[in-house]
Design a protein around this nucleic acid. Sequence first.
DNA 1: GCCGTTTTCGGCCCGACTGTTTTCAGTCG
Length: 574
Amino acid sequence: MRNQEIAAIFYKVADILDAQGVKWEPIAYRKAARSLESLPQPIEDVYAEGGKAKLMEIEGIGNAMSDHIEEILKTNKLKKLIELKKTIPEGVLQMMQIEGLGPKKAMILFKKLKIKSLPDLKKAIKDQKIRKLEGFGEKTEQNITANIEMYEKGHERVSLGNALPVAESIVEKLKKLKEVDQIMIGGSARRGKETVGDIDILVASNKPQKVMDEFTTMSSVERVLGKGPTKSTVVLKNNLQVDVRIIKKETWGGAAQYFTGNVEHNVVMRKIAIAKGWKLSEYGLVDNKTGRMVAGKSEEDVYNKLGLQMPPPEIRENSGEIELAKKHQLPKLVELRDIRGDLHTHTNWSDGTSSIENMISTAQKMGYEYIALTDHSKSDTVAHGMDEKRLEKYIEEVRKIAKHYPKIHVLVGSEVYIHQDGHLDYSDDVLKKLDIVVASIHRAFKMPKDLMTKRIINMLENKNVDIFGHPTTRIVNVRAPIEFDTKHVFQVAADRGVVMEVDGGPDRLDLKDTHIREAISEGCKISIDSDAHDTNQLRFMKYGVITARRGWATPKDIVNTWKFNDLAKVFRKL
DNA sequence: GCCGTTTTCGGCCCGACTGTTTTCAGTCG
């Protein structure tokens, strides 16, 4: 999957062109880059399938871009970027990453003061040289200083699992103000994106001053980047950036619409509005001639007036949803309340911390019809994996305790390690004793792609395997996914009836959105699991559902939305 | 550089906040 790699190259080209003052071209490169990022299939597959012509079918990819992609796939580099890099020092591009320093200001610093690196910049600030430049001043100098510090602290996007609880706590806090009429989380957090750059919060209020005062003085605030009556931005002590936008109740829907879709989605929406003689902004849909609001009280109004069905927030990323919305054929995505059970959990028999009994009773309290306990197999020694002897006892113990919980079906299973040649950690005879087998990779991540694919295919050939657990093994922001031929694996899995997992652990979210869509289109069934290691973590199901929604999954694709009796259709031993 | 039942050339989403300016450019999302 080289989509991200090529996107990164295009972003770089855009930055340099921006610095050179080139108009429009940077926009085209960024658009192409984003289009690649959200592409469900690997770009090399698209190219292999239909060459340049097929590439050009992708939104934002034209003649030049498809040539570029071809060049990168074949030679691993882009001549255009190499040439462009000669015109501007790398350090100046780095300077542009600093908040408040855009292409214009960075180039002034480079041209007038010969600043070409971050150390140069710090020295010039110390010598008070910057404040003397036209368009700069003392305040700008101070801001750059603070923002360099922020940049050096790290500017990585935060995982959804870390961002969402923070966002929710701010919402809870502001909700208590009587000045707040309505409040919601917007932006990429509402779309459930696996990482979040900053948190957007929308507030409907007629007294913005009070709300903004409360927001910017919260104890968790490190620095206030901006404060106005409709928009304020702060950086929290944990380095998360949070925006609050305040609007009037009358335009709530317009704002919710505007602050949820990604850029591409919103651009297409505005174009549809323009074609009808209207203008779309956070203040709703407005008639150009009369200046009157056509729609804006609710999000649904905005979409409907434009002739569209309202897409769920998670898929508002211009990856096909608008075309289907026009035809009123949007899929009905899976919801948390559709989930009837959890098929991948751990107890204190391996590396979990809750007892078998507590896991079962909590699952029952959550209203589940079934739960599978799937502790680790013998080779996963760090996770206290069980050898055959302990496994026997485990099976016995679970069966015994399950008798006290007749209202919930309890499955005994195991998360079994997949060795490098694809054979499993327990023999077939042992696996047959289990109700359900989740097969997972827990080490030897860095095998060559063809060998890794073979490892997985061999595992899929084993009749005792029910679910392929967290297939790519990535840890968000920490560990890269393993490499394998996803299309081939999904095809074989669909054929063999092995279910692909969406691990809801917020650090994993694996499969990820684009892979889920690919797997479903290849005919795979999906299981959304919490991979809980204690009773609280059973709630991770929520993140799995959000991710599955981003992968356009519907209840029929998700086996654990099915009734218990229907599970036997996919799980051979039930 | 991309794209098109308004266009194959001439557009390219829209608005808020800041700081430096006395009306606006730059930056951001």
